[in-house]
């Protein structure tokens, strides 16, 4: 499964409805960009979807959820903890298997931070940390990507490189993005969120930046 069909999504915070109720159906092969002003409910929607589809997806949360005390390798390896037996994971903590090392190193190579593999995450810059979280999602190798502003801390060329990588590796995805240009370029469908409701839902090749601006 990589597409999904969800109805009745809603969330409240402190008694106030933040989002929904709304329905969202994503077919396999679709890459949906969630756009909208900050506070519109994009992050909430991403986590709602994650709660529903759960383990089938790879998540890149906005706060990354890295374990600072662990090196880059282990933070990335964590994407696949559920795929291995506990003894394997525990052993990896002490001494990683060469198979995983190669795989992680290749991934880091693609994100051009190969040399950082054994560095504790605490000592990385914001952009590097974001790439570690992305690498963790890539390492997981599920077909559905749920990402919340995955490139917010990356500079232009790097942002394009990462978005391209995500497009290649995930057949299906829901990505919250505030950068309209990136959204139009790398996603097949744009969903605009305004005041917790879907205000726009259109294939991206039928839209131009001006169509989206009113949402902001």
């Amino acid at each position: 499964m990589s597409g999904f069909d969800l109805t009745g999504l809603s969330a409240s915070f402190a008694g106030e409805r933040v989002i929904g109720p709304l329905s969202l159906s994503v077919k396999q092969g679709e890459r949906v960009a969630l756009v909208g002003r900050s506070g519109a409910g994009k992050s909430t929607l991403i986590s709602l979807i994650h709660q529903q589809v759960g383990r089938e997806s790879s998540l890149v949360p906005q706060d990354l959820g890295l374990v600072n005390a662990l090196p880059v390798f282990h933070n990335i390896f964590m994407g696949k903890l559920d795929a291995h037996a506990t003894w394997y994971n525990t052993l990896t903590l002490i001494r990683p298997f060469s198979r995983d090392r190669t795989e992680v190193r290749t991934l880091l190579q693609e994100l051009s931070m190969r040399e950082k593999i054994w560095v504790p995450t605490a000592s990385l810059s914001g952009g590097q940390r974001q790439r570690v979280a992305i690498a963790r999602a890539l390492f997981r190798q599920s077909s559905l990507l749920l990402a919340d502003e995955p490139v917010s801390a990356l500079d232009g060329p790097m942002a394009h490189l990462v978005m391209d990588l995500l497009r290649k590796r995930f057949s299906t995805g829901v990505i919250a993005l505030h950068d309209v240009e990136l959204a139009l370029k790398y996603c097949t469908r744009i969903v605009g969120i305004q005041d917790g409701q879907i205000a726009l839902d259109e294939a991206s090749d039928r839209l131009n930046p001006a169509d989206i601006t009113p949402l902001y």
Binding site: S47, H50, Q51, R55, S57, L59, P61, D63, L64, G65, V67, N68, A69, L70, H74, M78, L81, D82, T86, N89, T90, L93
Partner: peptide, 19 residues
């Protein structure tokens, strides 16, 4: 913890003990 954090023993060894 991040929403998709591992559970059980993996949570212990990867998420909590290092922190």
């Amino acid at each position: 913890l991040r929403p998709d954090a591992p559970i059980g023993f993996n949570r212990y060894t990867y998420e909590l003990v290092p922190r």
